[in-house]
Simulated scan of single mutants.
Amino acid sequence: MKMRKLHLGVWLLFTIAFASVSCEKEKIVGTDDLPATGSTFLKEHFNNVTVLSVTKEKEGFSGTEYKVLLDNRTEVKFDKNGNWKDVDGANNIAIPTTFILPVIVDYVTEKYPNADFNSIEKDNGNFDVELTNELELVFNSQGDFLRIDP
């Protein structure tokens, strides 16, 4: 009986701890709350686009993330230091390529001259790219083409 109560207590404690860590805490913040690196990124690569909102999320073990929604319906995600993680243009809207590794831009321009970049995400050391023709490509951290994702 004591062992059963102990197991129940441990399980309950684990459940409460997991729930409190995994709960997303999201709040709208001002553009001034975005780390300087993120602000600079937006000024350099989205200079003529207006920021509609900045959301700060605290996500358990993965830390803080910022989501910026622009008036052209592009969403940019930054890590806690303001480094971009994901740039996503809505509904096949082309995104700028000025921040993308030139070798990736050159590859896409050569192989898919009629397509633009719709999104790019840093994912486990790779770059996941979606083109406006809905093709999904994966490149390594140096920009070498790895594969087409189905």
Rank of each mutant, 00 (worst) to 15 (best):
V129W: 11
V108E: 04
K111V: 12
H7C: 09
V103C: 08
N47D: 15
I100L: 11
I28Y: 11
V76W: 01
T50M: 13
D128P: 07
T15P: 00
I95M: 11
L42I: 08
D71Y: 09
A17C: 04
L12T: 10
F145I: 00
T31P: 15
M1Y: 02
D144V: 04
N72K: 07
V138K: 03
L34D: 05
T40I: 12
K2L: 07
N140E: 00
P35F: 04
E134R: 12
E59N: 15
C23Y: 13
V10Q: 05
F139A: 01
I16F: 03
K5N: 09
V105G: 04
E134N: 13
D88E: 13
I16Q: 04
F145E: 01
P113Y: 01
A19D: 00
G143Q: 01
F145Y: 00
T40R: 14
E57I: 12
K80A: 04
D88P: 13
D88C: 14
F46T: 08
N91E: 14
P35G: 09
G89H: 05
V105Q: 09
H45N: 14
H7D: 02
S53V: 03
D128Y: 07
P96S: 12
V49I: 15
F127W: 09
P102Y: 12
L12P: 05
D32K: 13
K111S: 14
V21H: 10
P35Q: 05
T37Q: 15
K27W: 04
K58Y: 13
K111R: 10
N92Q: 15
K80E: 01
W84D: 01
D144A: 10
T98M: 12
D149A: 02
N92K: 15
F41E: 12
V21N: 10
V87K: 10
A90C: 12
K5Q: 08
E136M: 07
N92P: 12
K2V: 09
L137A: 00
S141G: 08
D106S: 04
Y66T: 05
C23F: 08
V68G: 01
D86C: 05
G30E: 12
N48M: 10
W11K: 01
W11A: 00
R73E: 03
E130R: 10
F99Y: 10
F99H: 09
I104V: 12
K67N: 12
F99W: 11
C23W: 03
K43P: 08
D106C: 02
E130Q: 14
T97K: 13
Y112H: 07
G38W: 04
F99S: 09
S39H: 10
K80H: 10
L34E: 06
T37A: 15
T98W: 06
T37C: 11
S20D: 07
E134M: 08
F139C: 02
K25P: 06
K85L: 15
K43T: 11
P150T: 05
V49K: 05
I28D: 14
N72E: 07
P113F: 02
V129C: 04
K85W: 00
V105A: 08
R73L: 06
K77S: 13
L131K: 01
G63F: 11
L42C: 06
T15E: 03
W84F: 07
E44M: 13
T40Y: 10
E24F: 13
A19C: 00
P150N: 03
I148C: 06
L52G: 09
G89P: 06
E57A: 14
S119A: 14
F61E: 13
D88R: 06
R4D: 10
